[in-house]
Computed example of a mutant assay.
Amino acid sequence: MASEEQVELNAPHHPTEKAFEAFEVVEHTIKSEILKSRHDWNKHEPRMWSRAAGISDADLVSFNIREDLVECRSALTSYGTIILGKIRLPAIHDDEGEGFIHVRWLIDLGLEGTDDVIFHSLFTDEGNRDEDGHPTTWRAIQTRDTPLEFFNE
């Protein structure tokens, strides 16, 4: 898997038609992974998904790629194209504003030249750290201003 030092992401941009089509391929997986992440984090650190407190699973993943994919970035690697996307979560609107998730996936160039779309991860930020290196902030739901940057979760 590539690291931040190994990839050159293009500038953040509005999704193209090709991006919408590609994201629609992984939309179901993204929604499933959001719910899985939320449930897993709620077992040991509910603050990670705290902006979604009181919101049902169905409402949390009620986004539509055509309407809610607002930004993309990509980078070519030797094994395919890494895609990052910022997706609005319409159910999240609080004192921090709208809520967004950042996703990462890959269009893998298979051995036979066929493309496989592979979901990689959601960005879950264990932000600031105390003097012992332990996280003091947790954030799975980003703000509009959170930059869409490479992540390797």
Rank of each mutant, 00 (worst) to 15 (best):
A2I: 13
A2Y: 11
A2G: 05
S3F: 14
Q6I: 08
E8G: 06
E8F: 12
P12H: 07
P15Q: 09
P15H: 11
T16Q: 12
A19G: 14
A19K: 13
E24Q: 15
V25W: 05
T29N: 08
I30T: 05
K31E: 05
E33P: 01
K36P: 00
H39M: 00
H39A: 07
K43W: 04
W49H: 05
R51Q: 04
A53N: 11
A53E: 06
I55W: 03
A58I: 02
V61G: 03
N64C: 07
E67L: 07
A75L: 02
L76T: 07
S78L: 06
Y79C: 11
G80L: 09
G80R: 06
L84K: 04
I87V: 08
P90D: 10
D94Y: 13
D94M: 09
D95N: 14
D95S: 15
G97P: 12
G97K: 11
I101R: 00
H102Q: 11
H102L: 03
V103Y: 02
R104A: 13
I107A: 15
D108F: 15
L109V: 11
L111M: 14
L111E: 15
E112G: 08
E112H: 11
D115L: 10
D115K: 13
D116C: 13
F119E: 02
F119H: 02
S121T: 03
S121N: 11
L122D: 00
E126H: 02
E126N: 03
G127K: 07
G127L: 05
G127E: 05
R129V: 03
G133N: 12
T136I: 09
T137G: 04
R139L: 04
A140K: 00
A140N: 01
I141N: 04
Q142A: 05
R144P: 09
D145V: 01
D145C: 01
P147G: 02
L148Y: 02
E149Y: 08
F151S: 01
N152E: 12
E153T: 06
E153G: 14
